[in-house]
Write a protein that binds this DNA or RNA. Structure first.
Length: 189
DNA sequence: TGAGTGATTGACT
DNA sequence: GTCAATCACTCAT
């Protein structure tokens, strides 16, 4: 693993903050798609809103594995969301990627999403998954071993906003949502 | 074994 | 603003 990782991924909150500005890259036979992470949310095992709150299941077992792997899950019967596992092994922590800023393979993203507006391409957790072409086949993938799904360090954002999370009912008081200020690709400004 | 719910989005009123 | 789509998981029979 690259040197910058252990520190960044040591804890979900730290990771959520430091992953902003990093670049997510997915290589497929259709081409390369990449985007800058502009919005994240941290989830921990002692957090009522987390999938790991009630223990390990077949679905979330990757979150109990080592940091740096992809946790892709299916929800609402029709959507996938993408997380990066963080923290020590068995700690059940992860960071949900909520929004990206497209930088590469934008035409491919438009084709996958079936729309033309680049601000609608990846401004939501299920949207970015579709635009990037991420599927359940990427479940458990190591993001740092040079595979087709990778994470690379990027430019540190000028201004990070920390606020409460959205789209959940439990643990809403936790200020564990982070996004880059004034970025047009965040799901909810 | 079955009803209820969700880290969402898009279509429709 | 409201609602359907419909999988995996939890909790209650």
């Amino acid at each position: 693993m690259p040197e910058f990782l252990p520190e960044i991924l040591s804890d979900a909150n730290t990771a959520a903050k430091h992953l902003l500005g990093c670049k997510l890259i997915h290589k497929t036979k259709e081409g390369i798609a990449a985007g800058i992470i502009v919005e994240t949310e941290a989830y921990k095992a002692d957090d009522p809103a987390s999938h790991t709150y009630r223990g390990q299941t077949e679905r979330n077992k990757v979150m109990f594995g080592p940091a740096g792997h992809a946790y892709v899950y299916f929800t609402y019967g029709m959507h996938y969301c993408f997380n990066i596992v963080t923290g020590p092994k068995n700690s059940g922590q992860a960071v949900l990627i909520r929004a990206l800023e497209p930088v590469e393979g934008i035409d491919l993203m438009k084709k996958r999403r079936g729309i033309d507006d680049i601000y609608q391409l990846t401004n939501g957790p299920a949207k970015l998954v579709q635009a990037m072409g991420i599927t359940r086949a990427d479940y458990g993938a190591n993001l740092f071993n040079g595979g087709r799904l990778r994470l690379e360090p990027g430019v540190k954002p000028a201004e990070i906003v920390q606020t409460i999370r959205v789209g959940i009912k439990n643990g809403i008081q936790q200020p564990w949502r982070f996004y880059i200020a004034s970025n047009k690709n965040v799901s909810k400004p």
